[in-house]
Design a protein around this nucleic acid. Structure first.
Length: 468
RNA sequence: GGCGCCGUCGCCAAGUGGUAAGGCAGGAGACUGCAAAUCUCCCACCGUCGGUUCGAUUCCGACCGGCGCCUCCA
């Protein structure tokens, strides 16, 4: 088993990775803000994290993954206020949708999905520690800020120069009385709309709500400990979100926060970052409506390295759909095969090795995919050869199982009973026609099937069908 | 202005100091009643210009082009 190596943003290089206790990888992944459907760009990151947790298990460790759900923030409050609703009424439907979309993409369940609103006491306690440690200060209106000037390590993750934020970069307007423009809110004093939407809680500093960065620190430490193994998220979170998490966590505990930080690059569309404000977002439901499977999107995402920008083009998903169909055809063939050859076993062993090496080398999924496809070609050739080596076939099945346990790319064949019955009827008509060598009638039956998106394959043991 | 990334076959995309994975699409053939699936074969000198080197797509520099972060953001 090769050694797992990951790019650690903190060190800016690829390093060996292992959990501190040698057993369980404790990882925190920043989840969605549930005020909107998560788009495909968001899901690129979640898919990268899904790959990460699966590879960690492949390395022989257990995973304790926490993904937070941000269910209180400016946008949620604005949306709730606009309709006179409570923030919960805004966030609940989108929380459900997030999980539905996630499952469509076969993203495994994290061990926990804590919500910010259910951890207010933990957050208040954290702010109190920071105030006690004299790195936070209370403004006149009851807001509490973190003073970055009192935390010397500030900037170590993003490596941004905090002494001067230059002209050109937009600096936040000073809504409140901050000592330094870059100080960030730990606790925000309640405004009327916060109260109106149920987004305000009692605290030692008066009514208010937590700052965004605070929730991740509080929940990560509650479930994973003050120091944990891995913290992942999108690359845009490096600054300020993760930088601020480090500041407030380490200033409170005096201990390192996350041991390793991993960040996934963006998804672009039409050459620009996919983002709501750019107006180029696509959602999982859109994809599903177009008949694109979750596996096709997985393939598209894994076909590029997670630290490289990836552009979603017009036919990207079509290409991936075709690729994934090839994998599905092979999976079926492997199930139905009855024997193999010595060369098949050899191909399986080589494929596994190449696959693991690729993935353990900073999650090189494209190369792992290449290993899979090379295996598919070689195995198809050997299966054609009609050998008599049964253990070799088992070896091949095991290798494929291993690879698919990480990539999870075999497209589903949802079986609609009515459709299946209709298809079987056409097929038996076609069989009868072929037996009397009435090929015109046989082709007509096939044309009917094709028109409904059913593809058929004649084999030695009869005809097989599937949805295209 | 600061920080970072990218430019490899028609499209997507790995990779290496000694002449380049894989997928999609395409071409020729085998198999098939015809298809489909599968198999065989074909299909790139790695943005431009310099430098380092015995040798660079791979290192360095410049330039051209594209993207991201520095503000809510996966």
């Amino acid at each position: 088993m090769p050694e797992l190596r990951l790019y650690n943003t903190l060190a800016r290089r690829v390093e060996p990775f292992a959990p501190a206790d040698g057993q369980t990888v404790r990882m925190y992944t920043c989840g969605p803000t549930v005020y909107n459907p998560a788009h495909l760009g968001n899901f690129r990151t979640f898919l990268f994290e899904d790959l990460l947790r699966r590879v960690i298990r492949l390395a022989g460790w257990q995973v304790e993954q926490v993904m937070n759900l941000t269910d209180v923030d400016d946008k949620i409050i604005r949306k709730a206020a606009a309709t006179g609703a409570n923030i919960l009424e805004v966030t609940e439907p989108f929380t459900e949708l997030f999980h539905r979309d996630r499952r469509y993409l076969r993203i495994e369940d994290a061990e926990r999905y804590p919500k910010a609103t259910e951890h207010i006491p933990e957050m208040i306690a954290l702010v109190e520690r920071l105030v006690a440690n004299n790195v936070a200060y209370i403004a006149d209106d009851g807001s509490v800020y973190f003073a970055i000037a009192r935390f010397p390590d500030y900037g170590k993750l993003s490596q941004l120069d905090t002494r001067e934020i230059r002209a050109g970069a937009r600096v936040a307007q000073d809504e409140y009385a901050k000592e330094n423009a870059q100080d960030f809110a730990l606790w925000k004093a309640a405004k009327p709309e916060d109260e109106a939407t149920g987004a305000a809680w009692d605290s030692p500093w008066g009514r208010g709500r937590p700052g965004w960065h605070l929730e991740c620190s509080a929940m990560a430490m509650k479930y994973l400990g003050e120091t944990f193994d891995l913290h992942a998220g999108g690359i845009d979170l490096i600054f300020p979100h993760h930088e601020d998490e480090i500041a407030q966590s380490e200033a409170a505990t005096g201990k390192p926060f996350a041991r390793c930080w991993c960040h996934g690059e963006f998804l672009l569309t039409d050459g620009a970052k996919m983002a709501k404000r750019v107006g180029n977002v696509a959602n999982v439901v859109d994809m599903r409506d177009q008949g694109i499977s979750g596996t096709a999107y997985r393939h598209f995402v894994f076909n590029a390295h997670y630290r490289k920008q990836l552009n979603l083009g017009d036919d990207s998903l079509e290409q991936s759909r075709a690729a994934v169909n090839r994998i599905g055809a092979f999976a079926r063939r492997l199930v139905e095969a009855t024997t193999g050859t010595a060369a098949l076993a050899d191909a399986a062993t080589r494929a596994e090795r190449a696959f693991l090496e690729a993935l353990f080398d900073d999650l090189n999924a494209p190369e792992a995919l290449a290993a899979l496809f090379t295996f598919i070609s070689e195995a198809n050739r050997e299966l054609d050869a009609q050998g008599d080596d049964l253990p070799a076939l088992e070896r091949a099945r095991a290798a494929f199982r291993l690879m698919d346990s990480v990539l999870d790319l075999v497209p589903e064949q949802e079986v609609d009973a009515d459709l299946a019955a209709w298809v079987e009827e056409r097929l038996s008509m076609r069989r009868a026609a072929r037996e009397r060598r009435d090929f015109a009638a046989a082709d007509a039956a096939r044309a009917e099937l094709t028109a409904r998106g059913i593809l058929i394959e004649d084999g030695p043991d009869g005809t097989r069908w599937r949805k295209g």
